[in-house]
Design a protein around this nucleic acid. Structure first.
Lengths: 155, 155
DNA sequence: ACTGAAACCGGTACACC
DNA sequence: GGTGTACCGGTTTCAGT
């Protein structure tokens, strides 16, 4: 168990969250080490849950056409248990790639990816609208993706 | 150059965007193939840009405390060149992990990650507020992260 | 486009400092 | 917590179909 991360651990994380295929030897050279300590640190970072997993980032524009929509949802009455029911349901929808409980003008912010406007209409009608205690729903359609980082901004 | 993806390519993408460390042999078994065609297909998917890269997903809660804030920004006058200036500047800010041009009540939606409320105040004051042509700025602070998928929802 | 086997190279284990 | 070496397993290559 790592109590806290030192500068070397952070440097390794920063490299791996940019390119998980970076070979240990190259990381080692970059940090003036040999590959064994780099390897051991990575294993610790994995085992202690600092690294959740490794994923391929796919180019969604190339793979298939889609639109991204943000939905802002307010509940009629935000009672604790109702919120949990709501969230559990929303969590199941594959179209919802992000879901946050927020403070402000509305209660939930959803990022939804669907094939086209028609699919979004369908999603809103058959999934969102049927959720319990829905108040207002507003949508913002993405016209252009300027930035979409996966990496957490480590200093 | 791949004209379009077949069912096998899509199956491979789906596996790799969940776990990039899945070994070729296991993918092959899953698809009733041997590892060579799986390997060759992955290479094609990489070379033709269907797979952008591979990244480590880090557990940001464990690595360092932070808050996530959504900022909704309206410009005073959305002239084309001004928008580009704005976007180029926003793109530089490491705190901004996502930035979209949207249609609706406001022009831009930003997802911002900072250490704490103080850092957000600072970010808003020294970075957002100094951008050209800013109209209204609204913020929604994330109280709870319910879902945060990286994988594109392939059917 | 896939099979099967051989070669290669990076990840993994270990003995030592 | 680090180095250097040796081993092992997955990737990569290739001849054959």
């Amino acid at each position: 168990m790592i109590t806290d991360l030192d500068a070397i651990d952070r440097a390794i994380l920063k490299i791996l969250e940019k390119d998980a295929k970076t070979i240990a030897k190259s990381i080692a050279e970059h940090l003036n080490l040999t590959k064994t300590p780099v390897y051991e640190r990575i294993k610790r970072l994995e085992q202690d849950g600092y690294i959740k997993n490794y994923v391929a980032v796919i180019n969604k524009e190339k793979v298939e056409s889609s639109i991204t929509v943000f939905s802002f949802i307010s509940l009629e009455a935000q009672k604790g248990p109702m919120m949990d029911d709501f969230l559990e349901l929303v969590n199941q929808f594959p179209e919802v790639v992000e879901c946050f409980v927020v403070g402000g003008e509305f209660d939930f912010l959803l990022k939804v990816i669907v094939k086209n406007l028609d699919a979004y209409y369908n999603f809103a009608k058959t999934k969102i609208a049927t959720l319990p205690n829905i108040g207002a729903v507003k949508s913002a359609f993405v016209l252009k993706e300027v930035k979409d980082e996966i990496a957490f901004p480590l200093l």
